[in-house]
Design a protein around this nucleic acid. Structure first.
Lengths: 158, 158
DNA sequence: ATAACTGCAAACTGTTTGCAAGCGA
DNA sequence: TCGCTTGCAAACAGTTTGCAGTTAT
């Protein structure tokens, strides 16, 4: 289950912390290793669980205090699908031109390229007199395949 | 300040309630009148304030219980811009092919047409094996004009 | 040494809900 | 009348924060 840490991203984040004179603490190291050893999208709570599997000393507060640093560094992307909690994408920096689609029922998240949309979005922003800072295309859908199987919830669909 | 109620939408919503055997109470009437006499996007709290200006007896609970009915009827559209609260659009049914752009600083919301994007979105959903249920394009941006004025916050920008 | 960082638990914010009273059909 | 609806306040969920103790530099 334990995947190899993506050293590139990890290194960039540590550089980011050093540049800000932030300390590389044990807890931060564990959280970083956790984030950059998965390709899955996750919530704050999931990250906490995963990190605690490695070291029980990691607290919820530290996870919540580290997430803004990760997003600020642009190495992790924050996404809001209208659910009461946010999702985080640990591979956004590798391919920033993608968007996400979430299944209404099982919350499975699928990535897709969207150069076309990206361009249109910037055009629109410009026409309206805005500088677009972040784009987030929120598609809610239901899985066709799973729907045909008759079930598609968090338990059956993972 | 008090705009004319958009009778068309109001009538449709009352029909919606009747079809479901829901009652047309005084509080609901006030909330409906409030929603359909503005073109502005609003939050639950704003709606409560506006409704209370008409009748102090309207409670927060009733507003929160009425909003899902309004969105279910498709006469009001719920939007999530990554803020901790949701926004509602009371003219969505008039022109369902538009999306929104929000200013990061002052939270001003601007609408724009997006037939092109709409099509691409459906294509994408289909390719991936999903039936797209709702689309929400979330553009965060900053106002160019106001930025040049040096300020753009909730107070100065309304 | 000392300032940043941590865990804990309490606080906060937006939203939901149980309940007894109120009111529309 | 009957049961849907209401206001109230308490409960909730996710997130943030104050504080006293800990730790990286």
């Amino acid at each position: 289950m334990q995947k190899k840490v993506r050293e590139e991203a990890k290194r960039k984040f540590i550089e980011f912390l050093e540049k800000k004179d932030f300390r590389i603490t044990n807890q931060r190291r564990i959280i970083i290793d956790t984030v950059f050893s998965t390709d899955k999208h996750f919530t704050a709570e999931q990250l906490l669980d995963w990190a605690r599997e490695k070291d029980k000393s990691v607290s919820r507060a530290t996870v919540y205090r580290t997430l803004p640093l990760l997003t600020e560094s642009k190495l992790v992307h924050e996404m809001d699908f209208g659910k009461p909690y946010k999702f985080y994408d640990p591979n956004y920096s590798d391919s920033p031109n993608h968007n996400h689609l979430i299944c209404e029922d099982c919350e499975k998240i699928v990535e897709f390229d969207s150069d076309k949309i990206e361009k249109i979005e910037n055009e629109i922003g410009h026409k309206l007199g805005f500088t677009v800072k972040s784009q987030n295309l929120q598609l809610s859908a239901s899985c066709d395949v799973l729907k045909s199987k008759g079930a598609c919830d968090k338990k059956t669909c993972d």
